[in-house]
Design a protein around this nucleic acid. Structure first.
Lengths: 164, 164
DNA sequence: CTGCTTGCAAACATTTTGCAGTTCT
DNA sequence: AGAACTGCAAAATGTTTGCAAGCAG
């Protein structure tokens, strides 16, 4: 695992160098943070962690580093409902999908090789070379469902009733 | 089709009224615009169209109306890659999915009942009541693929090389 | 009349950018 | 040395909100 990390860091730094880019401390630290994650995170999470870690880094650099890692396919953006995006590292469990509760935001993961395969086929048939994919699946977890059942009838509500 | 529109508008207005809400001109016009779409759109598109149409409306109202329509399940947000969201109307072809080209943004749609069904099963098994879902599938269309092949080697590039 | 809605402008949250100084190779 | 990088603060996006005035029922 640690070995795996070193290998990926090594791979990243040499990829950078071979392109005339620098493997700066900030860049590597962002990657290290990413490799250490198990969950989803956003730019602020990375920034906060590195600050805590006393690594001198700015918000702009975190954004730039994450964009760089995304191009290297070391992190990926996934949507987690309600117009919000989070990153997750690409290594580790590949091609799992997320179901999130539309009410409380709870996330469940699953993977379905059969679905993956079919998507591969469909995109090829459509003239696309598959690069990456993930799903946004909204549902109601049991708790929220029960809760809402009482409060039902709430249809076409006003987004922000402002007064109140 | 026009009948279908009237029916849905009727449905929307009475749903609003039954909740003590008003079916104002702005609200209805946003819905009309939505029903007339074939593609994806964002709040700005709606605003621009209504302005052109001489309908007095403000940006804030468009956002509020869209949020309202989303709660009514008349529009839905879908992610179209690169952290960007667009709306699409819910009626019409249901549960199709999008593959977009990661380079040029071209969108292709498809639908796969078998996949839909499997997702339904998986979410139920996980204790979720499925509400809605869509996929984000990134690929490379043939043209972009060809184009990139010449320019290859571009790995781990710097997001914004800033100088020049 | 009452109170839901609107428009405006200010507020916000998030991400990007220009530039001068710093660091890497 | 020289190009690439960083930090900062300003700017750009995209969306939300408070409030006074305006309509709908």
């Amino acid at each position: 695992m640690a070995d795996d990390h070193s290998r990926q860091i090594e791979q990243f730094t040499s990829a950078l160098k071979s392109r005339g880019r620098f493997a700066t401390k900030q860049r590597v630290r962002v990657l290290e943070y990413v490799l250490g994650t198990r969950d989803h995170f956003d730019a602020e999470d990375v920034l906060r962690a590195l600050k805590t870690d006393k690594t001198p880094v700015s918000r702009a650099t975190v954004y730039r580093a994450l964009a760089s890692l995304e191009k290297c396919n070391l992190v990926r953006k996934v949507s987690v409902g309600n117009g919000r995006w989070l990153f997750e590292k690409v290594p580790g469990k590949r091609h799992h999908q997320h179901i999130y509760c539309a009410e409380c935001g709870k996330i469940m993961e699953f993977s379905e090789p059969m679905i993956e395969k079919r998507i591969e086929e469909v995109s090829r048939a459509g003239g696309f070379t598959l690069r990456d994919h993930s799903f946004q699946i909204a549902g109601l977890c049991n708790e929220c469902k029960r809760r809402l059942e009482k409060d039902k009838g709430r249809v076409c509500g006003q987004p922000t009733p402002q007064g109140r």
